[in-house]
Amino acid sequence: MKRVPLVIAGLAILAIAAVPAYHLIAATHAETAHSGSHSMHSANDGSSLPTEGGQSAFAAIAEIVDLLEADPDTDWAKVNIDALRDHLVDMNSLMLEAKASSAVENDTIKFQVEGEGKVLRAIHAMVPAHAAELNKTGAWTVQAVTTSTGAILTVKTETSSQLEKAKALGFFGLMATGSHHQPHHLAMAMGMMQH
Rank of each mutant, 00 (worst) to 15 (best):
A26V: 01
A12T: 13
N135E: 05
K110A: 15
S160N: 05
V127S: 08
A26H: 03
T177C: 00
K136M: 03
M192Y: 07
S101T: 14
T32V: 10
A30G: 04
Q182L: 01
A62M: 13
L67C: 00
T74A: 06
P20S: 07
I81T: 08
A189L: 07
R85V: 02
A43D: 04
E158T: 02
L174A: 03
H23E: 07
T51S: 14
D107E: 06
V65E: 14
L11D: 07
D45G: 00
I64A: 12
H29K: 10
L186W: 10
A17S: 12
S42F: 00
Q182R: 08
R121M: 05
A33P: 00
M190L: 12
F172I: 02
L163Q: 10
M1C: 14
I8R: 11
S102R: 12
E97W: 01
M188V: 09
A70R: 10
I25S: 06
G117L: 02
V7L: 14
T149C: 01
S39K: 07
F111Y: 15
L163E: 12
Q55G: 13
F111D: 05
L14R: 09
M40P: 00
Q112T: 15
Q143P: 00
T32F: 08
H130A: 08
E31T: 03
H130V: 11
I25E: 11
L6D: 08
M91Y: 14
H29P: 00
V113K: 01
P128T: 02
V142A: 10
P50W: 05
Q182D: 08
V155Y: 09
Q182K: 09
M188E: 12
M193A: 03
T141L: 02
M40N: 07
Q194R: 09
Q162V: 01
N44T: 07
A122E: 05
T146N: 13
K167I: 04
V79G: 10
Q162A: 11
A70S: 14
V142K: 05
T157C: 11
F111P: 06
A125H: 14
V79K: 11
A98Y: 10
F58H: 15
G36M: 13
L84Q: 06
A43E: 07
L186K: 09
I152P: 08
T177Y: 07
A176G: 05
I61W: 08
E158Y: 01
A17W: 10
T141K: 10
F172L: 07
H181A: 06
H87N: 13
V113N: 04
A33Y: 03
F171E: 12
M193T: 09
M193V: 05
M190C: 04
L68C: 01
L94D: 02
V145K: 09
K165A: 04
A122L: 04
K78G: 00
K99M: 02
T146G: 03
V119F: 01
R3N: 14
V89D: 15
A26C: 00
N80S: 12
F171D: 12
V79N: 11
E31W: 04
M91C: 08
T154V: 09
E133D: 03
V19D: 08
E116I: 01
